[in-house]
C-alpha cells in the first residue's frame, strides 16, 4: 500500500493538529515538534507529513501531491480549492471579522479595506451591498487603519488581544473558523482505506473532545 501524505500547516495550527493526531492513536516521533525539516516520514504509520504554509495546504492537496491536509476554514473560504472537506476538527477556533479604529465610519467615496483575505473580503462587502477597494497585505494587518492605509481590516480574531493592544475594535463578525480535514478527490477514491480510517479515528477524538469541554 502506498504511503499517505498529509499536508500540515506550520505555525499556529500545527501543534494542535499534532496533538489531535496523537490523541487519535497515531504514533508521531518527538522530534516532530521542533524539527525544521519540511518532510517527515513516519514509517510505522506509513504516513509522510509535509509542512506547508497554512495558506498553501489547499494547493498541495488540490494538486494531489498531498492526499489529505489540515487547513483553516479561512483558507478554504479564500482559496476555494477543489478538495473534499470531510471533517471539522474543531481546533484553532477563531473567527473572521471586520475591524477598525473606534468611532470611525467608512469613507463614503472610496472605502478601503486591508486584508490577507481579498476574496473573502470582497465577497463579504459585495453581499452587504457596499463597494470597497481591497488592499492585499501579507501580515500585520492591524497597521493599516493605524497609519491611514485603510478604513477597515478583515482578519482572523482569536482572543482579540492584538486588536485591543493596537486600539482597534471589532465591527462585524463574518464567519466562525475552525480547522478542517481536507482530502484530494482522487486520493479519496484511490486511497480510501487509510483515509477512511484516519477520518474515523479523528472524528472519534473530536467527538470525545466535545464531550470533555461540555
Amino acid at each position: 500500500m502506498s504511503m499517505l501524505t498529509i499536508a500540515m500547516p506550520k505555525g499556529r495550527i500545527f501543534s494542535e493538529a499534532v496533538e489531535l493526531l496523537r490523541k487519535s492513536g497515531y504514533k508521531l516521533p518527538d522530534e516532530f515538534d521542533e524539527s525544521r525539516k519540511l518532510i517527515l516520514t513516519v514509517p510505522e504509520e506509513n504516513i509522510r507529513f509535509i509542512l506547508a504554509k497554512p495558506m498553501d495546504v489547499g494547493t498541495y492537496v488540490e494538486h494531489g501531491v498531498a492526499d489529505v491536509g489540515i487547513a483553516g476554514k479561512d483558507v478554504m473560504m479564500e482559496e476555494e480549492r477543489d478538495v473534499f472537506e470531510v471533517l471539522d476538527l474543531k481546533i484553532s477556533k477563531c473567527h473572521l471579522a471586520v475591524a477598525g479604529l473606534p468611532d470611525t465610519k467608512m469613507n463614503d467615496i472610496a472605502p478601503k479595506v486591508a486584508t490577507k483575505y481579498p476574496n473573502v473580503a470582497s465577497k463579504y462587502f459585495r453581499e452587504q451591498g457596499e463597494q470597497v477597494e481591497i488592499i492585499h497585505l501579507n501580515g500585520s494587518i492591524e497597521l493599516a487603519p493605524l497609519i491611514g492605509l485603510a478604513d477597515r481590516i478583515v482578519d482572523i480574531v482569536s482572543t482579540g488581544r492584538t486588536l485591543k493592544e493596537n486600539g482597534l475594535v471589532e465591527f462585524e463578525h463574518i464567519a466562525d473558523i475552525t480547522s478542517r480535514l481536507i482530502v484530494n478527490p482522487v486520493s479519496y477514491r484511490m486511497k480510501d482505506k487509510p483515509i477512511d480510517m484516519l477520518v474515523e479515528r479523528l472524528a472519534k477524538t473530536v467527538e470525545e473532545g466535545k464531550e470533555d469541554s461540555d
Partner: peptide, 9 residues
C-alpha cells in the same frame, strides 16, 4: 474515473 498519481479525474 480516477487513477493513482493524478490529482484530477
Amino acid at each position: 474515473l480516477y487513477a493513482n498519481g493524478v490529482g484530477l479525474p
